[in-house]
Computed example of a mutant assay.
Amino acid sequence: MPAPTLQIFNSPCKSVCRMDDRFGWCVGCRRTRAEIKAWSTATDGEKMAILARLPERAAAETRLLSEGGS
């Protein structure tokens, strides 16, 4: 029987590391403090779930900023 496929997820960190309180996430990677803290011990499934949330956060941030939100 073949060995199961190993999933490895690199951190989405962009080395900006500054929290934006307007949004509640890092301006670089768009993860919350809890997600950043949990990343090193998260399962592949948990990492996939975190990564899946990031595009919508980017879109929400863009929408808010384009509407003149501060």
Results as ranks from 00 to 15, higher is better:
Phe9Ser: 08
Ala38Phe: 01
Arg22Tyr: 06
Thr5Tyr: 04
Ala3Ser: 07
Gly24Cys: 07
Arg31His: 10
Glu35Pro: 00
Thr41Val: 15
Ala42Leu: 04
Arg63His: 03
Leu64His: 15
Gln7Phe: 13
Phe23Leu: 06
Leu64Val: 06
Pro12Gly: 08
Ala38Gln: 01
Gly45Leu: 01
Thr32Trp: 02
Phe23Asp: 02
Glu35Gln: 09
Lys14Ile: 15
Phe9Lys: 10
Cys26Gly: 03
Trp25Arg: 03
Gly68Thr: 01
Asp20Pro: 03
Arg30Gly: 00
Ala58Pro: 05
Trp25Lys: 02
Ser40Glu: 08
Lys14Leu: 12
Gly45Ser: 08
Glu61Gln: 14
Cys26Phe: 05
Ala60Gly: 05
Ala49Met: 14
Gly45Tyr: 03
Arg18Tyr: 07
Thr5Ala: 14
Leu54Asp: 00
Ile36His: 02
Arg18Thr: 15
Thr62Glu: 10
Glu35His: 01
Asp20Ile: 00
Gly69Thr: 02
Met48Asp: 09
Lys14Gln: 11
Ile8Ser: 13
Pro55Ile: 03
Ala49Ile: 11
Leu6Lys: 13
Cys13Trp: 04
Gly45Asp: 10
Met48Arg: 11
Asp44Val: 10
Arg53Phe: 02
Thr41Trp: 06
Met1Gln: 09
Pro12Tyr: 04
Gln7Tyr: 12
Ala34Glu: 15
Arg53Met: 08
Ala38Pro: 00
Ala38Trp: 00
Ala59Phe: 13
Glu56Ala: 10
Cys29Phe: 06
Gly24Ser: 04
Glu67Asp: 13
Trp39Cys: 00
Asp20His: 02
Thr32Asp: 05
Cys13His: 09
Arg57Gln: 05
Glu61Tyr: 08
Thr41Gly: 11
Val16Gly: 05
Gly69Lys: 09
Arg22Ala: 07
Phe9Trp: 12
Ala42Met: 04
Lys47Gln: 05
Lys47Phe: 03
Arg31Phe: 03
Arg31Val: 05
Met48Ile: 08
Arg33Glu: 15
Ser70Met: 05
Ala3Leu: 06
Ala52Gln: 10
Ala34Asp: 14
Ala34Thr: 08
Arg30Lys: 15
Asp44Pro: 14
Met19Thr: 08
Glu67Thr: 09
Pro2Met: 13
Glu56Trp: 06
Ala52Leu: 11
Ala49Asn: 09
Ala38Met: 02
Leu64Glu: 14
Pro2Tyr: 14
Glu46Asp: 09
Thr41Lys: 12
Met1Val: 13
Thr43Gly: 06
Ile36Thr: 09
Val16Phe: 07
Ala3Arg: 15
Val27Gln: 03
Trp39Asn: 02
Pro12Cys: 01
Pro12Thr: 01
Arg30Gln: 15
Leu51Ile: 07
Ile50Trp: 00
Asp21Glu: 13
Phe23Pro: 01
Arg22Lys: 12
Leu6Ile: 00
Arg53Ser: 11
Ile36Phe: 03
Asp21Leu: 11
Phe9Thr: 06
Arg53Trp: 00
Met48Pro: 11
Cys29His: 02
Pro55Trp: 06
Ala49Phe: 10
Phe9Tyr: 15
Gly69Ser: 08
Ser70Asp: 14
Arg18Lys: 14
Ala60Thr: 09
Arg63Ile: 09
Gln7Asp: 14
Val27Ile: 12
Gln7Met: 11
Pro4Leu: 04
Glu46Trp: 07
Lys37Asn: 10
Trp25Ser: 01
Cys13Val: 06
Phe9Pro: 03
Ser40Ile: 12
Met48Tyr: 08
Lys14Arg: 08
Gly24Ala: 07
Arg30Pro: 00
Asp21Cys: 08
Met48Trp: 08
Trp39Tyr: 04
Thr43Lys: 09
Arg31Trp: 01
Arg22Asn: 15
Asp21Ser: 14
